[in-house]
């Protein structure tokens, strides 16, 4: 279970991962495979974190962070998902399902917070416009630093609120969880792989011979699953 005292390190890391999505440095530290693994590690169960991260990574493959579109914010959300999944040292049935669910739901909320911040950035940019049109270095620097700081704060707040809200819900659900591991993990993996597969096909099917490349990879993948 995540204690209230642990909120600070989680929020600080969440701030960095949330800012990485758009503001700085876009090095993809915010991808679920990284962020959820870090979340699990910080909560004390890195295995649960990486498992959650892999599933969330499949789901996040659909998201193209293209310019003005509104999309889920996977950075701080994946950290929260990984932390929730890894919040119990022994991996309980349902823990990964909850972690992934929390990750997606938080990413949705995080996406809205990013949209609100961009609107606020617009207000600040409009206010700074006369000074910037006069070539003021100070106005440019102030705007940039203000917006970057606001994004860090946004992501820290999203992380803290999500952990505060989801931790008791997680404990309640895990205490009452009844579906078996094989069934629940099969549904989880299938749903995530479907999202990833559908997204990749939508993005890449225009390439010549696309279905043959996919098929060749799938044959090799299935053979490896069988022999491994």
């Amino acid at each position: 279970m995540i204690a209230a005292a642990q909120l600070l390190p989680f929020s600080l890391l969440g701030a960095l991962l949330g800012a990485d999505v758009v503001s700085f440095p876009q090095a993809m530290l915010s991808r679920p495979i990284v962020a959820a693994t870090l979340g699990g590690a910080l909560a004390g169960n890195v295995a649960a974190g990486v498992l959650t991260g892999a599933v969330l990574e499949m789901v996040a493959m659909e998201t193209l962070p293209v310019g003005a579109s509104r999309y889920p914010e996977w950075g701080s959300a994946s950290l929260v998902g990984g932390a929730i999944a890894g919040s119990h040292l022994v991996m309980r049935p349902g823990a990964i399902i909850l972690g992934v669910f929390v990750g997606i739901a938080t990413a949705w909320a995080g996406g809205w917070s990013m949209y609100a911040l961009r609107r606020l950035n617009g207000v600040w940019a409009e206010r700074a416009l006369p000074a910037m049109e006069a070539g003021s270095r100070r106005a440019v620097m102030t705007l940039q630093i203000r917006c970057l700081t606001a994004d860090l704060l946004r992501a820290a707040i999203v992380t803290a609120i999500a952990l505060l809200v989801w931790t008791p819900i997680n404990d309640y659900v895990l205490a009452h969880w009844t579906v078996g591991r094989a069934a629940s993990h099969s549904i989880l993996a299938a749903a995530a792989a479907a999202v990833a597969g559908g997204a990749i096909w939508r993005q890449s099917h225009g390439a010549a011979g696309s279905k043959w490349y996919l098929l060749a990879g799938a044959v090799l993948g299935v053979v490896l699953v069988i022999v491994a």
Binding site: S204, Y213, L214, A216, A218, L220, L224, A228
Partner: peptide, 10 residues
């Protein structure tokens, strides 16, 4: 596409 076919089943 090739990697998707390979990695997703695993």
């Amino acid at each position: 596409l090739f990697l998707a076919g390979l990695a997703l089943p695993l």
